[in-house]
Design a protein around this nucleic acid. Structure first.
Length: 840
RNA sequence: GGGGCGGUGGCGAAACGGCAGACGCAGCGGACUUAAAAUCCGUCGUGCUGAGUAGCACAUGUGGGUUCGAAUCCCACCCGCCCUACCA
């Protein structure tokens, strides 16, 4: 009786051996080319869930593949350990966030080891430990010195009952109430620290062209940065030549279509220009807008409201007076806080004009209409429909625009921009949608912002040598959720580092996105210089190690981080370059985004839906290798997909078959000597599989990689019943199968490798090479189409010339039947692909 | 409102512009078994013709287009999921 495949025995055994032999340790002395393979670090929420497996198991396979390809691969791991859930747990269970977090990490480490990954645990980094966050604070200090950190008032969602600010995910429902107590949130303007990411806006755009990242991520980052080129020009108030304001537009070619002007409610000119009759209405609107502030206004997006000020402005291009309104769809924080309203050619302006009965003059029409000579046929009714031809820059020409009539984009932009520059104090201007990064959090479980406020010296940064500013271990959590740092006297009240007088520490902590913006550097030498005084001339990692491994060669993670984490870490690296810390300016050269693993019902896994799949249960039942291979087999990695509890059986059968191929004796001893053709056929199958699997690993196509190996194992099961079993070709096939499968299912392949008597470890073996000669085929079968429909197939030599192929195709009896009585017009021959005969 | 991704058998999915459905799940038929599990063999898009070998037609969300040839490229539309929120 042959021994059965028992993952519960072999998996822990090999995990222990790998660890004892330090199989996956980082090698800083290797002369192989280095490959820094990074996967997004997990948040220690408690248990490793299926999403973690889906992100990490295929990443691990890709890293192992690269290693077998001859690279010196480093695949580190860590934990993004600051954040809100730990604070909530602290309030709920009365346990310090540090303890809660570290206990979770202990549990998740064990689960991660169960997965059989090649993570280098010797360089693990945890962001909430002082040796880590001293450097997060060092970066803040450095950026402060570089003029990249500054403080200003910014709106936050505030719960008046809990007396704290809330993160976006803590604000629930249409009425925007507090997650914890249900109180509707307010907007408070608080002094907050920000990073000047906008200084790098252009560079963040340009850098995208030089990195091998998925196009969707690049598109999202470009849109997020939102560079727009336009023109700013001055408008004067009718009857008040002393007063003027500036507007920004990306469409100066539509200036003749202006029928109103809108100022943001906070615009400084509002009070000065409002007429007495309108004053009450305007003041009420301004007050209401101030109360709502920007965050709520964004939540109400879509509904237009506004008030007429009673004043008029002069359109510089035609001298027309247009009414000045205020409306909260115009934001003081973008452009000049004032816009020209051109309802015929802007959707938002159009909605506003409809609402308040303002005219909609048309100044761009399709070229065909212009050429037909009667643009005025396009009346307001046509504008109401706002056809694509109307709003499009391309394909439209200017009308009702005096000397500019007939101009098309981009000449229309150039001409009107020049005119405005000369006559309306205009200037070309580039605006960005990107805002500076607000990093202040009114929370306890984060890296404290190293700033001290002194009544005499003002804002004083904590000296480098005094870092880290440690979180207190005896913090007292209030049920309301208020930050304990505010009430911790020992933390809060300090001496000014400059004058020695009484001062107060900043009690806000930093956004956890800061911690994860530089973790790929922290991994190099975790907790570097812990316990030693820091200085501005430091590097936050061992520079000798950095020279070996930086930058990251391959990064993997979810696309949901496209515009936050992935932009922040790029910003960090550019700022670090300017600080002289690195000599490159993009942190990750290649990126691959996996999709999301869904519940059995095809919906996102969530406790409320009750569709959460616990990977531990499946690991216990099937083993880690089966779960790993199943997650890879489920579908294209970048697309994600639903978990199918029955389909995993197929993967288990596959691994059982692999086991049986190696371990079990053949059922019936085949007699006779092996057929040389069958031997060659097996060798061809082996080498075709090498080529296919290699290609798939290169492109992260794990699903077809597994499929190819399933097909190969099916072939081997057939061959095993023939005399080819036991030949050198058979041995080659079996070792190849194990080598190709090793990155995906590391335990079973290691076990079978050992049982074959091969030297430890399969994971240090070289990747098999496909023999090009065995990939060649002598004969090929070509489908023959008549008018695009396959009618028969012919077999010809692979290198047959076109006339031979044509001859064979035309004389084929089936084809003859279909050609009956028709004239052959054309014969299309695609070598090694097909033949298509086109008739009348 | 803006952006991203997707829509192919009963299901998950394959398919450099070139034989649609590889590989697997489920199903169906069979072998082994007292029986079941496991395993193995066969079958498996729909419709029509045919006793049958087989053959034909139709099929990749919908409608157009480009092409000798389209799941694949282009245009319009419908549906689903994810991210984002008035950026002039």
């Amino acid at each position: 009786m042959a021994e059965r495949y028992d993952p519960a025995t072999i998996e822990p055994k090999w995990q222990a051996i790998w660890e004892e032999t330090r199989l996956y340790r980082r090698d800083d002395a290797s002369d192989k080319p280095k490959w820094y393979f990074l996967t997004m670090l997990p948040y220690p929420s408690g248990d490793l869930h299926t999403g973690h497996w889906y992100a990490m198991a295929p990443s691990d396979a890709a890293a192992r593949y690269k290693r077998m390809q001859g690279y010196n691969v480093w695949f580190p791991i860590g934990f993004d350990a600051f954040g809100l859930p730990a604070e909530n747990a602290a309030i709920k269970h009365g346990v310090h966030p540090h303890r809660w977090t570290m206990e979770n990490i202990t549990r998740m480490r064990r689960q991660l080891r169960q997965m059989g990954t090649m993570f280098d645990w010797e360089h693990e980094a945890i962001t909430c430990l002082p040796g880590y966050y001293q450097w997060t604070q060092w970066f803040f200090r450095k950026f402060y010195d570089m003029g990249l950190a500054y403080r200003e008032k910014a709106p936050v969602d505030w719960c008046p009952n809990c007396n704290t600010s809330l993160a976006r995910e803590q604000v629930w429902g249409e009425d925007r109430h507090c997650e914890r107590c249900g109180t509707p949130v307010e907007i408070r303007n608080l002094e907050q620290w920000k990073f000047r990411i906008t200084r790098y806006a252009d560079e963040l755009l340009e850098g995208l062209d030089r990195i091998d990242w998925p196009e969707p991520v690049k598109i999202m980052q470009r849109n997020w940065i939102g560079r727009s080129e336009g023109v700013e020009f001055a408008m004067t108030i009718q009857g008040r030549p002393d007063l003027s304001f500036r507007v920004f537009t990306t469409r100066p070619d539509t200036t003749f279509g202006m029928s109103f002007v809108v100022l943001a409610p906070e615009h400084p000119l509002v009070a000065a220009i409002t007429t007495p009759e309108q004053r009450a209405a305007v003041e009420a609107y301004v007050a209401e807008a101030a109360r709502k502030s920007e965050l709520v206004r964004q939540a109400e997006a879509g509904e237009k409201s506004g008030v007429f000020t009673g004043a008029y402005a002069i359109n510089p291009v035609n001298g027309q007076a247009v009414p000045i309104w205020i409306a909260d769809y115009v934001l003081m924080g973008y452009g000049t806080g004032a816009i020209m309203g051109v309802p015929a050619h802007d959707k938002r302006d159009f909605a506003f004009a409809r609402q308040y009965g303002l005219p909609t003059p048309i100044v761009i029409v399709p070229e065909a209409v212009y050429k037909a000579g009667d643009p005025r046929a396009w009346d307001e009714e046509a504008a109401r429909n706002l056809t694509a031809a109307y709003t499009a820059k391309e394909g439209g020409v200017m009308v009702n625009s005096g000397p500019f009539d007939g101009l098309a984009w981009p000449a229309s932009f150039e001409a009107t921009a020049d005119w405005l520059a000369e006559h309306a104090d205009g200037a070309r201007k580039i605006n960005y949608r990107l805002r500076d990064w607000l990093i202040s959090r009114q929370r306890m479980w984060g890296a404290p912002i190293p700033i001290i406020y002194c009544p005499d010296c003002g804002t004083v940064p904590v000296p480098y040598a005094d870092l880290p500013v440690l979180l207190p271990e005896d913090a007292e959590f209030r049920p309301t959720g208020e930050s304990p740092l505010k009430f911790h006297e020992g933390f809060r009240y300090v001496k000014c580092p400059r004058c020695g007088g009484d001062a107060e520490r900043e009690t806000d902590t930093m956004d956890t996105f800061l911690c994860s913006s530089w973790y790929q550097y922290a991994y190099l030498s975790p907790y570097w210089k812990e316990g030693q005084p820091l200085s501005p001339d430091d590097t936050p990692w061992d520079p000798a190690v950095g020279r070996i491994w930086l930058p990251v060669d391959q990064y993997t993670g979810g696309i949901e981080h496209a515009t936050m984490h992935l932009l922040y870490t790029r910003f960090f690296t550019k700022a670090m370059r300017d600080a002289g810390l690195v000599d490159f300016d993009e942190p990750m050269l290649r990126l691959f985004n996996q999709g999301m693993i869904l519940g059995e019902d095809g919906e996102k896994m969530s406790k409320s839906r009750g569709n959460v799949v616990n990977p531990d249960d499946y690991v216990a039942q099937y083993g880690a290798d089966t779960v790993r291979a199943f997650l890879m087999f489920i579908g294209p990695w970048e697309e994600g997909g639903p978990w199918n509890p029955r389909a995993i059986e197929g993967v288990r059968r596959f691994l059982n078959r692999v086991w049986s191929l190696v371990v079990d004796p053949p059922e019936a001893a085949a007699t006779g000597s092996p057929d040389p053709q069958a031997v060659t056929a097996l060798r061809r199958a082996t080498h075709r599989t090498i080529a296919k699997v290699t290609e798939d690993y290169e492109h992260f196509k794990f699903n077809t990689m597994i499929a190819a190996l399933m097909a190969f194992s099916n072939t081997l099961a057939q061959v095993k019943t023939t005399p080819v079993y036991g030949t050198a070709a058979w041995d080659e096939a079996i070792t190849t199968l194990l080598l190709l499968l090793a990155p995906a299912t590391p335990h079973i392949t290691e076990e079978l490798w050992a049982r074959l008597g091969k030297p430890y470890s399969i994971h240090t073996q070289s990747w098999p090479q496909a023999d090009p000669e065995l990939l060649q085929v002598e004969m090929v079968e070509l489908p023959v189409q008549v008018n695009g429909k396959v009618r028969d197939r012919i077999t010809v030599a692979a290198d047959a010339d076109e006339s031979t192929i044509q001859e064979a195709a035309l004389t084929n009896p089936q084809v003859q039947k279909w050609l009956n009585g028709r004239t052959v017009r054309r014969v299309i021959i695609v070598p090694r692909r097909l033949v298509n005969i086109v008739t009348d």
